[in-house]
Design a protein around this nucleic acid. Sequence first.
DNA 1: GATTAGTTTGTAATCATTACAAACTGATAA
DNA 2: TTATCAGTTTGTAATGATTACAAACTAATC
Lengths: 135, 135
Amino acid sequence: MNNVGDFLKTNGIKPSYQRIKIYEYLMQNKEHPTVDSIYNALNGQIPTLSKTTVYNTLKIFIDKGIAMAITIDDNEVRYDAWMDIHGHFKCTHCQQVTDFSVDFDGIVGEELLDFDVLERQLFLYGVCKKCKEES
Amino acid sequence: MNNVGDFLKTNGIKPSYQRIKIYEYLMQNKEHPTVDSIYNALNGQIPTLSKTTVYNTLKIFIDKGIAMAITIDDNEVRYDAWMDIHGHFKCTHCQQVTDFSVDFDGIVGEELLDFDVLERQLFLYGVCKKCKEES
DNA sequence: GATTAGTTTGTAATCATTACAAACTGATAA
DNA sequence: TTATCAGTTTGTAATGATTACAAACTAATC
């Protein structure tokens, strides 16, 4: 499991125990956890863990570009270690968030011709397959 | 100016003075105001206005489908009365939000084939034309 | 004019996030 | 080994947006 540590080092982040655990958690739990779920999940293994550390660590990850924050719904920020371009679908019934691939070519109008676009986020909302079948 | 009142009525909203003013403000200020800017802008005309009323009213507008909330950046919810499908570009230099048209055809991968997509939001981030030229 | 439903208002509570300072850790140098 | 120092973690307190709630108000109806 030392590859996570190496990965952090490669990205200019000192691989402390907490940071390794938090990044591992992000990688293993792709359902876009919140700060709270990360904290609660890791508190068992790291009893001294502080929520501030979770916030700090996630901020470092984002600064260094190895994670991103997504605000799918107001007032719940979620975190994601999958950095490929992809979109997020949120089911308004079961609240589940589903990733999907996106092809951004040619969707943007001329208004942004001379703009530098550095980051893209596509959010879709509706009813997922499972909830549709159940109703 | 009574057409705004009629418009609200058509959408099942009793056209009170506050509601009319708030909706007018949304229509005239397309830069995606926050609750705070709406409140501050209207407080002159309506000295008794309460921030709670702004929150309540915007919630009603959203429920009835004549406005939408966008969370371009964490912890600042903005409101928009333009309900056509469009994207939002936020310049990370000047913080300005620019609307642009979007063609969503064919961008979504197969993962969502059996999903009902009811709402779409596309956010782009980067450097706008003006800031690019200035640097 | 009385009643009632709906609307607005202000205050207090909530809750996520941030600020900050103290405690801790681990490496390096004497 | 011990001292030092930068970087990390922790806990508490502060902030700030949003919500809950109850009282005051308004407008329409009987």
